[in-house]
């Protein structure tokens, strides 16, 4: 007794178009288009007497500067290096945590994960600020160190690269733990029993079974930390020293202090070029993960 669906398919089609078009147009306009403008400005000329301080041109001045002045290559390399080291430290802290949570009694997973994410919901800026108080000359860390009597006159970590590693690690730890947990949690534990049954000691079973199977989680977590860390500005600005060069800070200074829009844009474009490979990698991995989930569900 079904009535013929007259409006149905047509309405569905329009609904579908709307659902796709609304976010698509928004993202094209406010996310994709700006990059075209950044590209255009990066080849413009700087003119300090106009507002905005650029005149359209077809100039390679800004890019030439990036390669001539040793400051810029150094800043790029430094950013990649610092981000890589910080990512590695985050992995070393995050993996045992994720592993311990994934192997905890079932009822504990939720609260333990919540406790990892909870700091993320408080302010990022304020969490970085907390480290200033801890790492400064008379900060908590040095008070504790003096209290133990082991170190008489510890220097301040604030202003060193170590402070930046700590800051990145602290701010991004949840992004490392969550994908690792997801990979470790869905692992079939009978695989480990099978490995033990075939003669593998626990450590060997971890290396040959658990670790390889958690590689997607490791990759996902590392990319989620590494990519934003390369362009990080607040952490090196607040915790790092004046001599620590990171490219996010260089971009910021070019833009706000020197008002050199073309150079700032060129710095951004080159950073994008450096990050495009890891970003595409990240996006591929995510798409694969999701289609796999859907395949399993359907």
């Amino acid at each position: 007794m079904n009535l013929p669906l007259r409006i149905g398919p047509q309405g569905q089609l329009w609904g579908r178009r709307l659902v796709i078009a609304l976010p698509y147009v928004w993202l094209l306009l406010f996310f994709a288009a700006p990059f075209a403008i950044v590209a255009a400005i990066s080849i413009s000329e700087t003119t300090l007497d106009t507002v905005p301080p650029v005149t359209p041109a077809l100039s390679s001045t800004a890019y030439a500067l990036l390669f001539e002045d040793a400051l810029y290559p150094a800043a790029y390399l430094n950013s990649v290096r610092i981000a890589a080291i910080a990512t590695a430290i985050t992995l070393l802290i995050g993996y045992p945590m994720a592993y311990a949570i994934a192997r905890a009694p079932a009822g504990w997973h939720g609260p333990l994960l919540m406790a990892v994410i909870l700091p993320f919901w408080t302010s990022f800026l304020i969490r970085i600020y907390a480290w200033i108080g801890i790492l400064s000359e008379n900060g908590l860390l040095n008070q504790v160190l003096r209290g133990t009597g082991l170190v008489e006159n510890p220097g301040s970590l604030l202003g060193t690269e170590w402070a930046i590693y700590l800051g990145i690690c602290y701010a991004y730890l949840p992004f490392m733990v969550l994908p690792l947990y997801a990979a470790l949690e869905k692992m079939d534990l009978s695989l480990l029993e099978a490995a033990a049954d075939l003669g593998a000691r626990p450590w060997r079973a971890f290396l040959t079974i658990t670790l390889p199977l958690s590689v997607p989680g490791i990759l996902g977590g590392c990319l989620l930390v590494f990519i934003p860390a390369v362009g990080e500005f607040v952490i090196p600005d607040l915790l790092g020293g004046t001599e620590t060069l990171m490219i996010g800070k260089v971009l910021w200074d070019e833009f706000f202090l020197n008002s050199d829009w073309p150079v700032a844009s060129a710095v951004a474009m080159l950073m994008l070029v450096i990050l495009v490979v890891p970003i595409v990698f990240f996006q591929r991995a995510r798409a694969r993960e999701l289609t796999k989930d859907q395949g399993a569900a359907g």
Partner: peptide, 30 residues
Amino acid sequence: GRSIFSGLIAAPLVMPEVIMGIASLLLFVV
């Protein structure tokens, strides 16, 4: 354009904020 679309969704998740910041500002100025 689905693959571009899914790229547009994934990119802001990891894109350094300074890049998004300068890009947005330049768009608004234009």
